[in-house]
């Protein structure tokens, strides 16, 4: 349990680091910008209570906002993703339920389940983020396109991250 807490704090720090020193500096033609940090919210253990999950999401969003000199965009999107995760987990639960000691990862619930989980949550996060960022309806369509394109890259990075962390275990 304590080990879980430290693992998640470490992941928090690592993802913030990666976001700032790597991903924010990669310009995929200026159109897409992957936001891997959302993986932190996705990876929290099943046993995480709702209030903690939302608070953790809030803090993650705030930290990213602070560092990217924006106010609120990432916080809005990340808290939304946290809440959606709580709803979604009930919705796509396997027949025998979740093992509370586990986290939503590929090894714990399999590739197809994880893909479903990620493909819903990541674009949701990106859509909220890019739309809030645009903040107008006239540029709505480009924002959606950017969100979807960026989601593809974020999901790709999530898979790379997961495979690397599995291999090192």
């Amino acid at each position: 349990m304590i080990g879980d807490v430290f693992a998640n704090i470490f992941r928090f720090a690592l993802l913030v680091f990666l976001q700032f020193f790597l991903l924010n500096n990669i310009q995929f033609s200026g159109f897409v910008n992957p936001y891997l940090y959302v993986l932190f919210v996705l990876w929290l253990p099943f046993a995480t209570p709702g209030w903690l999950l939302l608070t953790a999401s809030f803090i993650m969003g705030l930290v990213i906002d602070l560092a990217s000199e924006t106010v609120g965009y990432h916080t809005v999107a990340t808290v939304f993703t946290g809440y959606l995760r709580i709803r979604l987990l009930k919705f796509i639960a396997p027949h025998d339920g979740y093992d509370p000691n586990m986290s939503p990862t590929i090894p714990s619930l399999g590739l197809s389940w994880f893909l479903k989980y990620v493909v819903i949550l990541v674009p949701a996060h990106h859509l909220v983020l890019f739309c809030v960022e645009t903040f107008s309806f006239s540029d709505f369509l480009p924002a959606v396109l950017r969100a979807l394109a960026s989601s593809i890259f974020t999901i790709l990075f999530i898979f790379i991250y997961q495979f690397l962390s599995i291999r090192t275990k």
């Binding site: 809030f58 106010v71 609120g72 809005v76 808290v79 939304f80 809440y83 809030v132």
Partner: peptide
């Protein structure tokens, strides 16, 4: 929490 975030966003 969303309320706080949106407030930040708008007052921004």
């Amino acid at each position: 929490l969303e309320g706080i975030a949106v407030t930040l966003l708008i007052r921004n």
